Amino acid sequence: MPRRRLASRILLISLIDRLLLFKIEYKTGVLAGMSYWATPGGQLRMDESFEAAAMRELKEETGVELQSVKLCIARREFPWQMPDGEYVLAIENYYLVRVNTEQCSSASWSGRERGAISEVRWWSQAELAGCDEDVYPPDLISLFVEALGVGAE
């Protein structure tokens, strides 16, 4: 049985209903040449809750600081290969967060994030539906539509 990798992901949606995604591109290692779009987020630290990880990752990856995240709209479990080649069982909670601006900061990105994130983009529902690049999770468009229906946090 592979190791379980617990992570929080954030569906960060602006006032004009656009979703923030990062383009991840691996230039070296076992995943060299792989690229895809994904939401902000990342792995839980030791004894960290999914909610605490969502708030920490949101601040580190976008500069958005919140006192809490309340709405987990999805949970996904799937096999995933890590950049070092390890196969894990990824367990991810997806949190809906609404923001008033489409600005985000990369000031707190780690060296690994700086090396892997090649583009930051806000997507409309139509743009995401028409995207011909890989997007993770594969059903992200349905999560986005669901999130838009939920309304403000």
Rank of each mutant, 00 (worst) to 15 (best):
M1L: 09
P2K: 13
R4D: 08
R4Q: 10
S8A: 15
L11I: 05
I13G: 02
L15P: 07
L15K: 15
L15Q: 15
I16C: 12
I16E: 15
R18L: 00
L19S: 06
L20M: 04
L20P: 00
L21V: 08
I24K: 06
I24S: 01
Y26D: 04
K27H: 15
G29P: 06
V30Y: 05
V30S: 09
G33Y: 04
A38D: 12
T39W: 02
T39C: 15
P40V: 01
P40L: 02
P40H: 01
G41P: 01
Q43H: 13
Q43Y: 10
R45C: 05
M46S: 14
M46N: 09
D47C: 04
D47F: 14
D47W: 14
S49M: 08
A52R: 11
A53K: 03
A54S: 13
A54K: 02
A54C: 07
A54R: 01
A54N: 07
R56F: 06
R56V: 05
L58I: 11
K59C: 11
T62M: 06
Q67Y: 07
C72D: 04
I73D: 00
E77T: 14
E77R: 15
F78G: 04
F78R: 11
W80M: 05
Q81L: 03
P83S: 03
P83K: 01
P83D: 01
D84E: 11
E86A: 12
E86S: 14
E86M: 09
Y87A: 08
V88A: 03
V88F: 06
A90R: 03
A90Y: 01
A90L: 10
E92Y: 01
N93S: 14
N93E: 15
Y94M: 05
Y95K: 03
V99L: 05
N100C: 09
C104K: 00
C104V: 12
C104W: 12
S105R: 06
S106R: 06
A107Q: 15
A107V: 07
W109N: 00
G111I: 13
E113Q: 14
E113T: 08
R114D: 04
R114E: 10
R114A: 06
A116M: 12
I117V: 15
S118G: 10
E119A: 14
R121T: 06
W123R: 03
S124R: 00
S124N: 00
Q125M: 07
A126H: 09
L128A: 08
L128I: 10
A129N: 04
G130F: 02
G130Y: 09
D132T: 13
E133I: 02
E133C: 07
E133K: 10
E133L: 13
E133Q: 15
D134C: 02
Y136S: 13
Y136H: 14
P138T: 11
P138V: 13
P138D: 12
L143K: 01
V145G: 05
A147T: 02
A147N: 04
A147L: 08
L148F: 12
L148I: 08
L148Y: 05
A152T: 13
A152Y: 12
